[in-house]
Computed example of a mutant assay.
Amino acid sequence: MAAGRQTVERRQLGLMLRRLRDRAGKTQQQAARAIGRDTARISQVETAKGSFGADELTALLDFYGVDEAERQTVLELGVQTRKRQRGRTYTDQLPHSFERLADLQADAKSIGFYESSIVPGLAQSPDYVRAVIATGDGVWWESSQDEVANRVAFRTELQRRVLEASEPKDISFVIAEGALDEIIGGISVLRGQILHLLQLGERPNVAVQVLPKTVQDNPLAGGGLITLDFDDSAPRIAFVPVLYGPSTYHDQEADTEPMFRAYDRAQGLALDQAATRALLIEKLKDVQ
């Protein structure tokens, strides 16, 4: 299949195949030989500039030793990438959609996070991560300590992949002040989370800003937004987090332009980093 536009589904497929290849300890050259293609073709698909047919994908998955659950997801993603037309958005309805969002975050060059009622996942302290995920146990999935442990480990690993990337990413957090008043896991957890934000804001590539309750005309009021910029390597993506249900991505400029603009507006309305630091220190004094 000829090279085409780097849609969300193509990016998800390529990044997932690269992750599976790395996990299997295989090189692009080995993968190419396994399916009778050249290395350039493996690279093309992994960088979202093409796709594979079902037989080629099956052969690759066999070579990587992929289990049935992941296999079905990859094959269905392959179907999505081969569709000639789709709507303006892409809705990921496949299992474990958070894993593919994580791949996109790890691949982005700059990321913006806005949240109105919770601290964004990448900015969460270890205790806050455990507390947030524990609140979903028995609600969003059948109660399972193994599931909780797996989700905590996954989020911790994502933080490492993004925050400790070999090529530092530009990361921006805009957090509505109300999110810092939500008690999740207890007062001590909230106190630790505020301390964590102060430490996070000291990183040269990370900006932490708080949007005060007194600010008027916030274009993102009541919602959440993640913006993903890949520089010139791929189209920008905007993602609106949901509590439950399918994940919808926007990758058409007609949609991403206003969504990135809304994020920029919220960022401009928020306290600058110095004023944010002062506010966080004041909140530490109030959280006893």
Rank of each mutant, 00 (worst) to 15 (best):
D272L: 09
Q44I: 00
I184C: 13
I281Q: 15
A221E: 08
R236P: 03
D251R: 00
K169T: 07
T58C: 04
V129Y: 01
G223I: 03
R11E: 03
M1Q: 10
V206R: 00
L211H: 02
D217W: 14
P241G: 15
D217K: 02
T135F: 04
Q80V: 01
T58L: 10
V162K: 06
S116H: 12
V66Y: 00
I183P: 00
Q44W: 01
D181V: 00
S247I: 05
S166A: 14
R88L: 06
H96E: 07
D251F: 06
D232K: 15
L77P: 06
A262E: 07
Q273R: 10
Q28G: 14
G112C: 08
E182W: 08
A262W: 03
V132W: 09
I194V: 14
V148H: 08
E142V: 11
R86K: 05
L180M: 11
P258W: 12
Y64V: 01
F260M: 06
D231H: 15
R191F: 10
D55E: 14
N150F: 09
I171E: 10
S110E: 12
R277L: 05
Q216N: 06
A179G: 05
I194K: 04
Y244H: 15
R151L: 12
P235H: 09
S117C: 08
L211Y: 08
L61P: 00
Q288W: 11
Q199E: 13
K26V: 15
A275T: 07
Q105L: 14
I187M: 02
L60F: 02
E70K: 11
H250R: 12
Q44E: 14
S51M: 03
V148E: 10
E177I: 07
R155T: 02
H250W: 05
T81W: 02
A254P: 01
D67P: 04
F173L: 13
G136K: 03
D217T: 01
I194P: 00
T227S: 12
D127H: 06
R10Y: 01
Q273E: 14
R71T: 07
V79M: 07
L104F: 00
T256M: 08
I42W: 02
N150S: 14
A134V: 09
Q105S: 15
G53S: 01
G224V: 06
A54H: 15
R265H: 13
Q12N: 05
K109Q: 10
N218H: 02
A40F: 03
E253D: 13
R161H: 03
L279P: 02
V129C: 09
L271Q: 10
T276D: 08
F239T: 13
P258Q: 11
F113A: 08
K169N: 09
A31V: 06
P168T: 04
A59W: 03
